[in-house]
Amino acid sequence: MSPDEFPATDWPLHVTVVPPFETELAADQVAALVPLVPPIPIAGATRERFGTHGTVPVTVLRGSAALVALHTSLVDALDATGATLRDQRHIRADFRAHATDQRRGRLHPGEHALLTELCIVARAPGGLRRVAARVPLPPA
């Protein structure tokens, strides 16, 4: 396993900006769709449970116009390229930014963090996930 690969069951702590999608674009082409924005401050707000059966523990983030704008920009750009976003229920006006609890940690209500990088994650053989591209968010 390379340093950029991880088991699908062992994601690092992260915020999903765009739900899973399918595209014919290469990872660097998807990365080129990311607008140039500075790092985005985030903060945990409330604990909730997501998923069909309410079994996925998450920390919903406090409202962030910058994060919503980034999400909307990326969804619009992916749509324009013909990408298929699998879950249309949680995008644009229905986007609820959150950090899902992971084995290695979680974001707590009131805790602050700074998003400094976006990663394009792809499926890899053997049930692995691979960071296919990294897009740093440059300081303003």
Rank of each mutant, 00 (worst) to 15 (best):
I40G: 00
P35H: 02
T52Y: 15
E48A: 10
G44L: 08
V56Y: 12
L33F: 07
A45F: 08
E48M: 07
P41Q: 00
G54Y: 05
L33T: 04
G54H: 12
V37D: 12
P35A: 00
P41V: 00
V34E: 15
P38Y: 11
R49T: 07
T59N: 05
G54D: 15
E48C: 11
E48V: 04
F50L: 06
P41A: 00
L61P: 01
R62E: 12
L36I: 10
R47H: 11
R62H: 12
V60P: 03
G44H: 08
R62G: 08
V60W: 03
E48Q: 08
R47W: 15
E48H: 09
V58K: 03
P38G: 14
P41E: 00
T59Y: 10
H53Y: 13
P39M: 05
F50V: 07
T55C: 05
R62D: 13
A32K: 08
E48I: 07
L61G: 02
V60C: 03
V34S: 06
T55E: 13
R47L: 13
P57V: 08
P41W: 01
A43E: 09
G54E: 08
P57M: 10
T59F: 14
T59K: 01
P39R: 01
L33W: 15
V34A: 10
A43R: 03
T46P: 09
T52D: 14
A43M: 04
H53M: 11
T59D: 06
G51S: 02
L33E: 12
F50Q: 06
G44K: 05
P41D: 03
T55R: 10
V58C: 03
I42T: 00
R62N: 13
L36S: 12
G51E: 03
P57H: 11
G44S: 05
L61H: 00
T52F: 12
R62Y: 15
G44T: 05
L33Y: 09
G51M: 08
F50G: 06
G54K: 08
G44N: 04
G44C: 05
R47I: 09
L61I: 04
H53R: 13
G44Q: 06
F50E: 06
T52H: 14
L33Q: 04
I42P: 01
T55P: 10
A32W: 15
V37F: 12
L33A: 02
T59L: 01
P39A: 01
G54S: 08
F50M: 05
V58F: 05
P41I: 00
A43N: 02
P57S: 09
T46V: 12
